[in-house]
Structures are given as structure tokens and as C-alpha cells.
Design a protein around this nucleic acid. Structure first.
Length: 243
DNA sequence: AGTCATGTTGACGA
DNA sequence: CTCGTCAACATGAC
């Protein structure tokens, strides 16, 4: 659920509620739920891993974290975090973090940092990335201010594709390689989106959770890398570290 | 059955 | 005050 492409799918599956008015609200979310009653959804947007329901003058920000989920016109046998009920249909969110954002949504987000957005700007990403001298590339890819929407699966798959070691230090990576990395982060995210849409994502993993390298057949290393200590799967022979 | 993970925030102590 | 570390949250795949 949580990476950028998955959030695009949430948007696709809930777009039908744009223009609809909320009749009532339920759930254990601590936000002011009454505020939503009689509000009409103006738009539904995403930025990175954030799912955004826009109203006149404010926005509801939903983050699915690790275990978040949602259902359209269905309920789970679980406590609803926030349920939006319309005259026809309902939208239920579970185990997610919800907050209000006030005013113009454009004042809250830099769309050009979102790898899934039409406004994605790889040059800006490169400028930001180059400032992260000592950072390991495995941490850099997870920086939401640079690569909004990239998560741990995308991180691993992109690094394998561009043959870059997760523990490569950003300042040691040639500029041309950084460009390839940035470009591939967007390209792979869209492939992820299509595979996920077809419920066929796992079959296309090249390195994530794999035992052996598809290229050289050596064992894939599993290691918790970087200050973020997220698991990395990589081939020591095929992925360069530049040190 | 127990372990672990597609993520982030906030508390706490140095 | 800032920085680093880690607990907390909470579901489901294997």
C-alpha cells in the first residue's frame, strides 16, 4: 500500500467521489470530524505517499504508513479510522494517519518533488541530491523531500537496475550516474504502478527479497543499511560502490 | 505461531 | 536547543 504508485491507485479508485457531498462521518480519528459534514469534495490529489482530499479552503491529508488500507463501498471487520459517507456510497480508511491542511494545497506541497507527478523535475532532484555529500544513496532515495513517493521496494529495485551499491556515498557517485539514478526512479515507479494495477507486482521484482542475482547468480546480500536502517537487497559484484 | 515489514512521528536523553 | 536513537503505532503475509 504505502509507496507512491500505490497511492496513485487509491486516487484512481476513489475519483468517483469528486464533486460529491459528505452526508455523515464515522471513525476513531481524532480530527474534527464534524467539519467534514456537508462538505463537497473539490478534488483528490496525491503527492508522494500523501493522499489528499481537497475541500473549499482546506484539505484532508491521509498517510497510509506501513499498514494503512481503504475500502470503497465496503467495510472491514475492524475499527474504521475515518469513514466518509455520501448519499450514494462510502469511503472507509483504516490504520492511517489523518490531518487537516489549511488553505491552498499548493502552499503545502512542491509537486516537482513527486516522482509520479507531471511536474516532476529531475534537475531539481539532482541539485538537492548533490547537497547530500556524505549521505548513502540508500538513504538519499528514501528522502521524501527529494524523491517523494519512493519507498523501500522502489529503492532496492532502482539501485539494482542502475547497478549502484546501496551504501555508495552520494559525493563519490559520478554525476552521470546520479542522472541515471534519478531518471530510473521515475521510470521504475511507473512500471511499479502498472504491475501493481495488474496485481502482478511481486513477479517483477528483480532483487527485492531475492536469493540470487539474476545477472551473475551470486547470492543477494540482505543488509539493513544507512542511518534509516531499512533493508537492502543487493549484489556485491554487480552493484558498484565507487570508493 | 512467531516473525517481520512497502513508514513516519514524537519522546527522550546526551 | 540540537542531534541521535528508538519506541510506538498496528495489520497481514509467510
Amino acid at each position: 500500500m504505502p509507496e507512491g504508485p500505490s497511492i496513485i491507485l487509491v486516487k484512481e479508485n476513489t475519483k468517483k467521489f469528486i464533486g460529491k457531498k459528505i452526508v455523515s462521518v464515522s471513525g476513531d480519528s481524532k480530527i474534527d470530524q464534524q467539519r467534514l459534514v456537508n462538505q463537497k469534495i473539490i478534488d483528490i490529489k496525491t503527492c508522494g505517499k500523501h493522499y489528499l482530499i481537497c475541500f473549499k479552503g482546506f484539505t484532508l491529508k491521509i498517510h497510509f504508513l506501513m499498514f494503512g488500507s481503504y475500502l470503497v463501498n465496503e467495510k472491514k471487520d475492524r475499527q474504521v479510522r475515518l469513514g466518509l459517507i455520501f448519499s450514494k456510497g462510502e469511503l472507509n480508511f483504516y490504520t492511517c494517519a489523518i490531518k487537516y491542511l489549511e488553505g491552498d494545497i499548493n502552499d503545502h506541497y512542491d509537486w516537482s518533488a513527486d516522482v509520479m507527478n507531471d511536474e516532476w523535475d529531475p534537475k531539481k532532484a539532482k541539485t538537492k541530491l548533490k547537497k547530500q555529500n556524505e549521505m548513502l544513496v540508500c538513504d538519499a532515495l528514501l528522502e521524501q523531500d527529494i524523491f517523494s513517493g519512493v519507498g523501500n521496494i522502489i529503492k532496492n529495485e532502482v539501485l539494482y537496475r542502475v547497478r549502484l551499491h546501496p551504501e555508495a556515498v552520494v559525493k563519490d557517485i559520478p554525476s552521470s550516474k546520479l542522472k541515471t539514478l534519478i531518471d530510473e526512479s521515475r521510470i521504475y515507479s511507473f512500471e511499479f504502478l502498472n504491475w501493481k494495477r495488474n496485481l502482478d507486482l511481486k513477479r517483477h521484482w528483480l532483487v527485492y527479497t531475492k536469493k540470487n542475482c539474476l545477472r551473475c547468480h551470486l547470492p543477494i546480500i540482505k543488509k539493513y543499511t544507512g542511518v534509516k536502517k531499512r533493508r537492502s537487497f543487493f549484489c556485491e559484484k554487480c552493484q558498484l560502490i565507487y570508493n
